[in-house]
Simulated assay, not measured.
Amino acid sequence: MNALSAADFAALAAVALSARMIEGADGAPAAFLLALSHETPAQGPNHGWFLQHFPAFAYIDRVVVAQQAQGQGLGRALYADLREQARAAGLAILACEVNLDPPNPGSMAFHERLGFRPAGEATDPRNGKRVRYLTAGL
């Protein structure tokens, strides 16, 4: 995970294609998804990789589901919402990356179930994490 200050997160959300949050029963955030597009200025090496390799896309920059809310379908709901937004914007590809080192098998399995397939791999120069780039058609 690449932590952001509140100000940096607000700046990222301001240039995002989509920034959605689902509240839990207690009113606290239970899950959120922030997505960028090919029209967003480069926001780090992973988004930059997609800018270099695909002419148009919706890139999932951050998705978080609170531990107590996991397994309730919130991640799927956020991805379904983004798919609709991307289609409405005329986009045909969702894009993201998942860590290979350190491994994140839960995230990889989640994305595979949603139809994401490998598009490339790289090492993030900011933190040395090895990532697999994934895409899914809409």
Rank of each mutant, 00 (worst) to 15 (best):
N2F: 08
L4Q: 02
L4W: 03
A7Q: 10
F9C: 10
A16L: 02
A19L: 08
A28V: 09
A31Q: 04
F32C: 08
L34M: 10
L36P: 03
L36I: 06
L36M: 02
S37K: 04
H38T: 02
P41L: 08
A42G: 05
Q43D: 12
G44T: 11
F50S: 05
Q52E: 15
P55C: 12
P55F: 08
Y59S: 08
A66E: 14
Q67H: 04
Q67P: 06
Q70K: 01
Q70N: 03
G71T: 10
Q72S: 12
Q72Y: 01
L74P: 07
A77Q: 15
A77P: 00
L78S: 09
Y79E: 07
Y79Q: 03
A80Y: 06
L82A: 00
E84V: 10
Q85K: 15
A86D: 04
A89T: 13
L94I: 05
C96P: 03
V98S: 04
L100D: 12
D101R: 00
P105E: 06
G106N: 12
G106V: 14
F110M: 01
H111M: 10
E112S: 09
E112Y: 09
L114S: 01
F116E: 06
R117H: 07
P118R: 01
T123Y: 00
T123N: 13
R126G: 02
L138R: 12
